[in-house]
Every structure is written in structure tokens, then in C-alpha cells.
């Protein structure tokens, strides 16, 4: 079941078109990556989804229909521009935020200490937020996003100020939430986190969708059939079915002719007596795909 359905939304500010005909959907039980360079229209898209902005055209269905006051209680949002009330104790700020999400006082008293314990913040609960480190404040913000058990979680750069241990902690928590059937939208520039967490993604730039699909589909679409081999002895100057040979750190990258698959290439190498220590099919990283797609998009726009 889709928790968010974005249908052909567009939004302009004055003469600037921030979002142009964007569509995608986010399903229950998945982590969905909303990716794009700075100024690509991600934040505007999220603000339209969350009813902060109204789209000029198109529509958004959230948790089965238009946004209502009650639905706001079932959404957890961690914006990129975020913070806590600096002059107040962490515990009091989180209690206030949880109560605004409709939680009963008794529930807050039960759940908040557990969350503080889980995020290793129990000893800092009474401290003013300004006395906490950036990472601690960020973990506090993650608690504020999750404590009311939202059906839909939207998080923008959730790992920005976290060390590797806390990054792993937040990743584990997000995976737990996904396994409970929550729909999670994650915006980040850290492609390694997208690769390890996201089930599907959409890539936007200059307000347009450049790419959408599951990680497997995208990898399949952008694969080049190139292989990386480490031969026992020197390679011949040319090989059948190979368009280009280049050296990469003591290994060789072979770019096959159009239509030649990696398995066909392996057969060719064996039949030509090339002995190898290793043979690896190269799959483009999400970073490379991101850079490639954004560059292509810019060329088309120019």
C-alpha cells in the first residue's frame, strides 16, 4: 500500500520553477531515497508533501488522501534545517514535541526514558540542549521524529553530524522501523548509506525526475558489461570482442564490444589462453550513476 503518492506536482516561486512535473510513490515497509544535488527541488518537494507549500499543479495523497490535522500526528519529520530549543532541557523539549504529536502524558513518561536509554542520552536528559554536542542533539531530534510511532517517516540527512557508531545506531533504528511496516523517505548525499538502506529511489535535479526505480533496476540499467581482470602474464595487445583495454592499479579494465556479455567475454579470454588470478564484473556505484545522470541532465538542459 502506498503511503505517499505524488502525481505530477509543479511549483514555481516567482519566475523560478522549483519543481516540474514530479511523480513517485512511497510504499509501506520500504526505505525510499529522495536524492538530488543541492537546490534540485528536494526540500520543496518534501514541503509540498507535508502541506507546508501548495503545488501550482498536480496533487499529493498522503496516508490515503489529502493532508489533515490528524494525519500530522502520524508523520515523523526530520528536516535538514533542524534544531531544538537551546535554552531548555532536552527532556522537556522532547516531551513538548511528543505532546504536540498527540501523545498522552502517560505514554510519554513510559516511552521517552526508553528512547533516551536506547540513544545513550539518559544521562543528559536534564541538560540544556545548548550544552549537548551536535551529535547528541541530532540523536535527540531523531527521538522527536520517532517517539510518537509515526506511520510515515521523512528524514533529511539523518547521518550528517553522527560518528560511525551513532550512524550505525540510527541505521539499525531505521531498519527496525521499516521492518515494522513503516514507510520511510530518506534524503541524503551519502550514497553509501542509500546503497545500504534504500529499497527504491528517485533522483531529481533542477526540479525534474532524472531517475527512479529499485537499486537493482538502476544498477541493471546503468551497467556497462566492463570487467576487471588480473592476468597471470601480460595480455596480448588486442583481443576479440574487446573494444578497449586500460590499466587500473595493476589490473586491466576490459570494455567489451556492443552486445558482448561478461560471460561471453570470459569465454573469449579462456579460449585465447589468458590465465587470470581474478575476474570481476564491474557494477557502477550509485555515486558514479548520480554524477553521470546529473551531468547528462545538465547537458540536455543546455
Amino acid at each position: 500500500m502506498s503511503k505517499i503518492v505524488v502525481s505530477n506536482i509543479s511549483k514555481s516561486f516567482g519566475k523560478t520553477r522549483a519543481v516540474k512535473d514530479i511523480s513517485f510513490d512511497v510504499r509501506a515497509g520500504e526505505i525510499f531515497g529522495l536524492l538530488g544535488p543541492n537546490g534540485s527541488g528536494k526540500t520543496t518537494t518534501i514541503r509540498i508533501i507535508l502541506d507546508i507549500y501548495q503545488p501550482d499543479s498536480g496533487k499529493v495523497a498522503i496516508l490515503g488522501g489529502p493532508m489533515t490535522a490528524d494525519k500530522k500526528n502520524h508523520i515523523g519529520y526530520l528536516p535538514e534545517e533542524r534544531g531544538l530549543y537551546q535554552d531548555m532541557a532536552l527532556e522537556r523539549v522532547l516531551t513538548y514535541m511528543a505532546s504536540l504529536k498527540g501523545m498522552a502524558d502517560a505514554d510519554i513518561k513510559t516511552k521517552l526514558p526508553a528512547y533516551l536509554e536506547k540513544f545513550d542520552l539518559a544521562a543528559h536528559a536534564k541538560k540544556k540542549c545548548k550544552e549537548l554536542s551536535k551529535g547528541m542533539q541530532q540523536k535527540g531530534q531523531v527521538i522527536a521524529t520517532l517517539i510518537h510511532d509515526p506511520e510515515l517517516i521523512i528524514i533529511d540527512e539523518p547521518f550528517a553530524a553522527l560518528d560511525p557508531i551513532n550512524t550505525q545506531l540510527v541505521k539499525d533504528v531505521l531498519e527496525e522501523e521499516r521492518d515494522k511496516g513503516k514507510a520511510i523517505v530518506m534524503c541524503t548525499h551519502q550514497m553509501s548509506q542509500v546503497e545500504s538502506l534504500c529499497d527504491r529511489l528517485v533522483l531529481v535535479d533542477q526540479g525534474r525526475v532524472l531517475l527512479t526505480g529499485s537499486l537493482e533496476e538502476i544498477a541493471e540499467h546503468y551497467k556497462t558489461n566492463e570487467v576487471l581482470i588480473k592476468p597471470v602474464s601480460a595480455l596480448p595487445a588486442s583481443l576479440p570482442d574487446v573494444r578497449e583495454i586500460s590499466r587500473v592499479n595493476g589490473s586491466y579494465k576490459l570494455s567489451p564490444e556492443e552486445g558482448v556479455t561478461p560471460s561471453q567475454l570470459l569465454e573469449t579470454l579462456v579460449s585465447n589462453g589468458v590465465a587470470m588470478e581474478s575476474y570481476k564484473v564491474l557494477v557502477p556505484s550509485l555515486d558514479e550513476i548520480f554524477i553521470h545522470v546529473v551531468a547528462e541532465g545538465k547537458k540536455q538542459n543546455d
Binding site: 500530522k72 508523520i75 528536516p79 534545517e81 534544531g83 530549543y85 514535541m97
Partner: peptide, 17 residues
Amino acid sequence: VEEKENRTIEIMLTTVS
């Protein structure tokens, strides 16, 4: 001003009108 300075406003606006 504090809501802006502390960056709490966007969270607030997705919780209350």
C-alpha cells in the same frame, strides 16, 4: 526569531498549523 534561529520552525509547521 528563536524558532528560526534554532531551526525548530519547520518541525513545528509539520505538527501544528
